[in-house]
Design a protein around this nucleic acid. Sequence first.
DNA 1: GCTATGACCTGACGTTACGTCAGGGTCAAG
DNA 2: CTTGACCCTGACGTAACGTCAGGTCATAGC
Lengths: 253, 253
Amino acid sequence: MPYTVGRAAALAGVTVRTLHHYDRLGLVRPRGRDRSGYRRYTDGDLERLHQVLSYRELGFGLDDIARLLDDPDARPLDHLRRQRSLLEERIARLTAMARAIEHMMEATEMGLSLTPEERFEVFGEHDPAKYEDEVQRKWGASPAYSESRRRTASYDKAQWAAIKAEAEAITLAFKDAMARGEPATGAAAMDLAEEHRAHITRRYYDCGYDVHRGLAAMYVRDPRFTATYDVVAPGLAAYISAAITANADRAGA
Amino acid sequence: MPYTVGRAAALAGVTVRTLHHYDRLGLVRPRGRDRSGYRRYTDGDLERLHQVLSYRELGFGLDDIARLLDDPDARPLDHLRRQRSLLEERIARLTAMARAIEHMMEATEMGLSLTPEERFEVFGEHDPAKYEDEVQRKWGASPAYSESRRRTASYDKAQWAAIKAEAEAITLAFKDAMARGEPATGAAAMDLAEEHRAHITRRYYDCGYDVHRGLAAMYVRDPRFTATYDVVAPGLAAYISAAITANADRAGA
DNA sequence: GCTATGACCTGACGTTACGTCAGGGTCAAG
DNA sequence: CTTGACCCTGACGTAACGTCAGGTCATAGC
């Protein structure tokens, strides 16, 4: 009943070399060897291999995968749930790309050309790494920055997804407030600004009102940040910026 | 109006190093440099960069991308069409994975375990890119291969579906013949082999009897091909292989 | 019983697509 | 005229394998 490397590889759609590689890394170890040293893969080994390939398909590095799978308090069902949600995210992204391409096809057919910003809309999307870089330039090696680095370093993909969802929810709430005609200096907008500040404090570093003011300034000064928010709704960057400033004023800072 | 590396990189969501890399490879070359040697990216350069990133997202290697983009008789719209269909394929695949995972979740919750075959169903599956790669290694830059590349590039989703259906019909006919006890070297099986050859010639490239023999050999030698057919029925790969060889003999080649 | 062929073994070096310094010019603001 | 962010070109590092090389093991045919 146990499988040889070749059969296991054929079944999983990978090469023998890949299985050798995973064996050496300790990522997928065959349960045993026969007397001539041949690897014997059991059903359980193949199940693990399947988990590895699923995560790999989703873009995880092999060492991340090892950490995920060897986490003692992650039950099989947890992995499946996580994989499903990651898959959904990925599908959503590809669907957005497909929509963007349709859009470009129409534009091309009508003979008009897109601006670079339009073109990269789906690519340039919210990428933590980019902002991190920005932050580094602005605040160099400030204590806030080091703390952020320290904390974000330990976040895994699932946590990043959660953080991203949080951030997005806040942004959309701002958009709604703006759409409802809520003034940026009103209580509702200020409450959202406060939520935004709490989000940063929870997830990145202790964000005081002064630092928050700095962020607000950057949102309108830097075209890259401005673009990020104005994609959601024109004028949103300025709206959020004003709300943050008003909120800091309200707090007396 | 022209962009510096940093701005271009931020816009596209890649690192500066990546742009340096693409520049050196000649994949995305900035239109020029200023007097101090700084790269200046024009809108056209960014359009090309976007094409590169789209194809990269779809899993193409950089040299493949270079060949695709530098193909003189591929118009922009062709690339977009191709990207769209590749995206659709990929989305379909991920959706299938998501379904498989749902399925596994149910199974896990009910406390029953899946066979390895069931588990890898979606992984081991027919992946054109994999075969293409294989074909390239086998026949290098043969005229047959280039012709296949040229012709398949223009197929859209509907055509691919039709081709796949054709191929499947032939495979199932083989399976039936085998189930009926028809000998692989008999007239019925040989006729199916001939149909198979015609299918390849119609859809991919001119497949002579000698090339067909080569395919037959690969069907049994390579576990990946073998698995593809043996999933339908055990021994089917060998059966088809024998039928093809017999048919080539019959034709006197 | 012999041999040929294909699957398996373990190194070990090659490859792709960048990441990450190192060492050194460039430019706008104060 | 200094400072800090941005740019340049090497050049070495890394991840995830691909690709030999050199040798063992199994089994089918003669």
